[in-house]
Amino acid sequence: MHVEPHPIIWGSLLKACKIHRNLEIGKEIGKLVTEMNPDHSGRYIQLFTWQTSMNNEKETAINQHSEKLAVAFGLTHTKPGTGIRIFKNLNVCEDCHDVMKLISGIYNREIVMRDIIWFHCSRDGRCSCADYW
């Protein structure tokens, strides 16, 4: 390439590695992408779902509640007190919504989840939607 590739380009290549089942190159790209943009929780989910895609039961569970996985990675890969941002292309379920409120209070973190309809900003055990969505 004539320009330095953006993390989005690397993410596209990572997806292509998944489609073509090229695990070796995918691992290298995954490492590079997470180093370039460690705060992007979607990359961790993308890598995890790829690694578990050989097992359909695990893949289904992750796709349904990926925000729990994203917040777990966020908690383990960021400094205490850092906010966590999660983008989801499905509605957040009530259980995940309650978990995010609980985690925000326990770990003193602001967790912002964006689903297809709402922004949910959990802080100090409460959500900005006032549990209405």
Rank of each mutant, 00 (worst) to 15 (best):
K58P: 07
R126G: 05
Y132V: 00
E94L: 11
Y107V: 08
I86K: 10
Q64K: 15
I106S: 09
F119W: 12
K68R: 15
V92A: 14
W10N: 01
L23K: 14
S104E: 12
M54I: 14
R85D: 15
T60A: 15
L102R: 06
E24L: 08
G42N: 13
E24W: 03
R126E: 05
L47E: 06
V112D: 08
E110N: 11
I103D: 01
P38G: 03
D95W: 09
M1T: 02
G30W: 00
K58I: 14
E59A: 11
A16S: 15
R126Y: 06
V3S: 00
G125W: 00
F73T: 03
R123A: 05
M1G: 14
H65F: 08
T49D: 04
E28Q: 15
K15F: 06
K68Y: 09
Q46Y: 11
K18I: 11
S66H: 07
S128L: 01
T34V: 14
I45Q: 09
A72W: 05
Q51A: 13
G125E: 00
I45H: 13
W118G: 06
I84K: 04
V92S: 15
H65D: 01
D124L: 02
E4Q: 01
V99S: 10
Q51P: 05
K88S: 14
C121A: 07
C96L: 09
W118L: 04
M100K: 07
H2Y: 09
E57D: 13
R126M: 03
V3G: 01
K27A: 11
Q46H: 04
L14V: 06
R109P: 08
H2M: 10
I45P: 07
C17V: 04
K27C: 05
N22Y: 05
D124M: 03
S122G: 02
A130P: 00
K18G: 15
I62G: 02
R126S: 00
P80D: 12
M1A: 14
I103C: 01
M113K: 04
E94Q: 14
I116H: 06
H20W: 03
N63Y: 13
K79E: 14
K88C: 10
K15D: 07
S104T: 11
E4P: 00
Q51V: 07
Q64V: 09
D124I: 01
N22K: 09
M54D: 15
I8N: 10
T76K: 14
I111L: 12
P38L: 04
M54T: 12
I106M: 10
C129D: 03
S41F: 04
E35I: 03
H97R: 13
E94R: 15
K79T: 13
H20R: 07
I84H: 11
Y107F: 15
Y44P: 01
K18A: 11
H120G: 08
I86F: 10
H120W: 07
S122T: 05
V33I: 12
N63D: 06
R109W: 04
V71F: 08
E110H: 07
L23S: 12
G81A: 02
W10S: 08
L90T: 09
R123C: 05
E67K: 05
I117Y: 09
C93H: 11
F119S: 12
L14W: 01
Y132F: 00
Q64Y: 11
